[in-house]
Amino acid sequence: MQNEIVLEAPLTINWAINNSCNFACRHCYSRTDTHEEIPRDVLLACLEKVAKAGVFSVNFGGGEPLLHSGLLEIARHASGLGLRVSMNSNGWLIDRETARALRDAGFTKVGISIDSHISEIHDQFRGVAGSHGRAVAALGHLAEAGITTSISTVICRINHTAIDDLVIFAREQRAGQLNFHNFKCSGLGLSHKDELDLTPGEWQEFYRRALAAKEREKGLDISLDDPIIALLGARDAGSLVKGSVCGKLSLNIKANGDMTPCGFIPIVIGNIVRDDLKQVWRDSPVLEKMRNKKATGKCSGCSKYEDCLGGCSARALALTGDLNSPDPHCWA
């Protein structure tokens, strides 16, 4: 009684409600974005559109979402509409009182960005002294408030060989989930690509070791959101479709309401203020292209293509100009 289905709306929306940030991360994808934000009353109405379309969950991001003065009201409104509400934060502003306020506003899960188990390395990467300590403290405050926590780590040159250390660190912090996000060449990430990105061979080695850790570690959910791991015969348990989930299960909304397939693909396919979400989801030619990728270049004839579908479309677009190109991280 289980079947293939064409979804009529995204399951989840990643919503960058602002672009203001108190950090200066080397890989930031949104620092160069407009600081134009949707007025609060309009944003609340947009959330109603999203809920009405049947979206299950909204994950707030930014920028640093806690710098948005209306975050709690917005979350409370979303939660009241039946949306599951979560957030990604750098943790700097989360003390005990804020953690409780987040819980009361309806946040069920908060991910904290931590890129190294070594505080000096994290602080340097994030551009703010003391940021590691504040992030760790935030994890404690959130857990104490009863909010599920996760650690989000952007894998790049500063941490790709530290998998075991990151796992130990996550366990010490009692995080339920450790998300290894693949480095995207988007925004400042593109400017600093040569300094931060790994070679295809290094990605292969990283994923071999990360998948081994995922298999080995019980009680800690290690999440790998990269479709390219299909090359190693693996699929993340969280991967519910073949290839990338972007445009198939999830959609991104920017601070000004522009909708993009994901946060790392700067192609605007509509605007949540003026457009119908379900219509954009159904009719966008960009999403159609992402859902029906065609093997090109070295993907042609690759035995893993059916599962990998060319890997990450955002990386392909950033480095080749075509969503359909083979993922530049591919080592095959």
Binding site: M1, Q2, N3, E4, I5, L11, A237, G238, L240, L249
Partner: peptide, 10 residues
Amino acid sequence: GVMLSLNFLG
């Protein structure tokens, strides 16, 4: 992390 799609009877 698990998605199911059900037919009409399901």
